Simulated assay, not measured.
Amino acid sequence: MSDLLTHADVTARTDARHWRVLLNTIHASFRTETFTRGFLLAQRITIAAEAVQHHPDLHLTYDRLRVRLTSHDVHGVTDRDIALAAVISQIADELGIESEVPVLGVTEIAVDALDIPAVLPFWRAVFAYRDDATTQDALEDPAGIGPSIWFQQMDAPRPQRNRIHLDVTVPHDVAEQRVAEAIAAGGHLVSGDRAPSFWVLADPEGNEVCVCTWQARD
């Protein structure tokens, strides 16, 4: 087992051209342009991962390869992830494949509940999810593709506003741009009191979303 690294340490030690910290994981999105180049990059990454017996999650589409690294035994980023990220960056450079940091993000569904144990089984059944390994108050997609669902404890009923919202965790250095673009697109800032940890935004009808980063969370 390796020691957990802080998000600040991970950010300092990974290639800023490619990697960003998102929810106790590090992500990169490589613009491969063709499926064949994406498959080649995925193949090279697979060989490197097998050599060190530490395996990333890969999501290959026609023109992109998304890579996610974490150490599941400690539920966070360790030296193993840093080392493999460096190898993956080198492989991408050798193949002449660039990355796209601004497109990175992880979405969660947040459900405010008075009685979490009563509510959680419903969402587990509807989504066919499983309990999150790191906390009792969250669910995760067994396939690792869909958004996780987490449950926030309420102290009293709140009928005056929505009780389900989205959390979008983005790279720390693009968060303010995301917030500005959302406001320019017709939304408004509900609260920035906890920034840069998160900003609370709402669309023109009051539906809320939080734009989150790793900062102010370590």
Rank of each mutant, 00 (worst) to 15 (best):
M1P: 08
S2R: 09
L4V: 03
T6W: 00
A8S: 13
D9E: 14
R13Q: 15
A16K: 01
A16T: 12
A16I: 13
A16L: 11
A16S: 14
W19M: 09
V21S: 13
L22Y: 02
T25I: 06
A28T: 11
A28W: 04
R31H: 04
E33H: 02
T34F: 12
T36A: 14
G38W: 05
G38V: 12
L40I: 11
L40H: 04
L41T: 05
L41D: 05
E50W: 11
V52H: 08
P56K: 03
P56C: 02
H59S: 14
Y62S: 15
D63Y: 02
D63S: 05
R64D: 00
R66H: 15
S71A: 15
V74T: 05
H75I: 02
V77S: 11
T78K: 04
T78A: 01
D79Q: 12
D81N: 14
I82R: 04
I82S: 14
A83C: 11
A83D: 12
L84S: 14
A85Q: 11
A85M: 06
V87E: 12
I88A: 10
S89D: 09
Q90C: 10
I91W: 09
D93Y: 08
D93T: 09
L95R: 08
I97R: 08
S99P: 04
V101T: 06
V101E: 03
V103C: 03
L104E: 09
E108C: 13
E108Y: 15
D112G: 01
A113L: 04
L114R: 03
V119P: 00
R124T: 15
R124V: 12
A128L: 12
A128K: 15
A128S: 10
T134V: 01
T135F: 05
Q136G: 09
A138M: 11
A138R: 00
D141F: 04
D141P: 06
P142Y: 07
P142D: 13
A143P: 02
G144H: 11
I145H: 12
I145A: 06
S148L: 07
S148T: 03
Q153D: 01
R158S: 14
N162F: 10
I164M: 12
I164N: 13
V170H: 07
V170F: 13
V174A: 11
V174P: 14
A175F: 08
A175P: 01
R178H: 15
V179P: 02
A180K: 06
E181F: 11
I183V: 15
A184P: 09
A185M: 00
H188T: 07
G192K: 04
G192C: 13
D193V: 11
D193H: 09
A195T: 13
S197W: 08
F198R: 04
L201S: 04
A202E: 11
P204G: 07
G206E: 09
V211P: 00
C212V: 15
T213G: 07
W214V: 00
Q215E: 12
Q215I: 04
A216W: 06
R217M: 02
